[in-house]
């Protein structure tokens, strides 16, 4: 009988709604292993559960847009800096500056959004292809690379668009000549990032112009025959913006989450994926801030001309 009463008591206690914190809803672009590690670590630290919707950058944005009349997301982590610019322009972001953002370079933060980390754009080549090791963007216009170069399509890959924007901002005439020479060298623009990388890994092609570096470094770590090269004349970063949405019903928890993303622990999890941590004082597991030559350009201004840039790129490549 005693046991029964005890069991009943335990049952009642379990049945009473516990006043656990409401879950924080985060929409995050891949890598999924990073998102779920962050969610778990945050929950362990604060006790607040995180409901993580993981998908591609395009799909989390599409879901957010389609949900607007009844929004669910509190925080978004995108892989495309342009998303932060667009949402900021539309006034949909909650202003917040995390105290942990002090060590994030000025170009990668504003009052409304901040980078979690960044990828650098690179040349990736397959040493098995027998091609000479490229060192500069323009090397790939050389006849020895004819028919061997692929590039992600700026219309389908935000990072490839950033590279085009950066090179054009650095030296417009030079950049467009470079692209038309690449086209003359039978550059293949097959689709998004993976579509450009796969033929190079499979040996059908030899080099990627504008590969997302941490994916290449990760593939190499898994034994793929692939090398990453950062041209000394400069490359661009593809930062991953973190945003709190104005429609969030858990703004305080959301701010805690952003603080956590930029904490030592959060940044180390970013480094584990071979992504460049946004904080310059957290060591990277790949070429770090002082080893990369970054082209400095106005991302906002470039974003305004994005449609024209994409169209021009398409017409230059089609020739």
């Amino acid at each position: 009988m005693k046991q029964f009463v005890a069991a009943l008591a335990v049952g009642l206690v379990l049945a009473t709604p516990t006043f656990a914190a409401e879950p924080l809803v985060v929409y995050s672009a891949g890598p999924a292993s990073l998102s779920s590690a962050l969610a778990k670590a945050f929950e362990a630290k604060t006790g607040t559960p995180v409901e993580m919707f993981e998908s591609t950058a395009g799909k989390i944005m599409a879901r957010y847009q389609a949900e607007k009349s009844n929004p669910h997301a509190d925080v978004m982590i995108s892989a495309s800096w342009g998303h932060a610019l667009t949402l900021d322009e539309a006034g949909e972001l909650l202003p917040y500056t995390s105290p942990n953002a002090a060590q994030v370079p000025a170009a990668l933060k504003s009052d409304r959004y901040v980078a979690q980390g960044a990828a650098a754009l690179s040349i990736a080549y397959n040493p098995k292809s027998g091609l000479p090791a490229p060192q500069h963007w323009a090397d790939l216009t050389h006849p020895s690379y004819k028919g061997q170069v692929t590039m992600p399509d700026p219309a389908k890959s935000g990072s490839a668009l950033t590279l085009v924007q950066g090179l054009v901002a650095q030296d417009s005439a030079n950049a467009w000549t470079l692209f038309s020479q690449l086209a003359a060298n039978d550059l293949l623009v097959p689709g998004a990032n993976k579509a450009a990388l796969n033929p190079v890994l499979q040996g059908a092609k030899g080099v990627v112009f504008g590969a997302v570096d941490y994916i290449i470094i990760g593939a190499k770590a898994k034994g793929e025959s692939i090398e990453v090269v950062y041209p000394s004349e400069g490359t661009v970063l593809a930062p991953r913006p973190v945003m709190i949405l104005k429609s969030s019903r858990h703004a305080e928890t959301a701010k805690q989450f952003v603080d956590f993303l930029l904490s030592d622990q959060g940044q180390q999890l970013v480094a584990e994926e071979y992504i460049l941590p946004a904080r310059t004082d957290v060591p990277a597991k790949r070429p770090g801030w002082n080893e990369l030559a970054i082209i400095d350009f106005d991302a906002k201004q470039a974003a305004e001309q994005a449609t024209a840039t994409k169209a021009k790129f398409a017409s230059v490549i089609a020739k």
Binding site: G58, A66, A306
Partner: peptide, 12 residues
């Protein structure tokens, strides 16, 4: 259509 979904800008 997929270009409008793929990365940025999203144009539903």
């Amino acid at each position: 259509i997929h270009e409008k979904f793929s990365d940025w800008p999203i144009d539903l």
